[in-house]
Write a protein that binds this DNA or RNA. Structure first.
Length: 100
DNA sequence: CGCTTGACACCGT
DNA sequence: AACGGTGCCAAGC
């Protein structure tokens, strides 16, 4: 079981309409490798199974996801799940926050 | 085996 | 409040 593998497993656990942060995921893995979490998610071999769009930065902003590409469709999908996004930041992201 | 990179977080300015 | 610099950890080369 690699670090990345755990990350994906946890990410899969995120229910629809909920989100979490890299920091939290790393802590759940008993580690401070929140950056490595991002690395794992970007690899994401299980694209459909792992909702990486539900993992955001600690301040509730989309770090890199939309930044890499102008993929508004994914952001729109998040909105459809009940998450409101203003620019790169999630509105009331703490309320949707899933702490495992 | 060691240096560089990156979807972050934290602190100072 | 916004921006920039620094530290962190795992993976890749």
């Amino acid at each position: 079981m690699n670090f990345s593998n755990k990350v994906w497993q946890l990410t899969q656990k995120i229910p629809k309409g909920k989100i979490t942060t890299y920091n939290i995921v790393a802590k759940k893995l008993n580690s401070k490798a929140y950056r490595a979490v991002g690395q794992a998610l970007k690899k994401n071999p299980n694209a459909p199974e792992v909702p990486c769009h539900r993992v955001v930065a600690s301040d509730g902003s989309i770090y890199g996801y939309k930044g890499i590409k102008n993929n508004k469709e994914k952001i729109n999908l998040l909105k459809k799940e009940g998450i409101k996004i203003k620019g790169k930041k999630i509105i009331n992201f703490k309320e949707h926050l899933y702490k495992f």
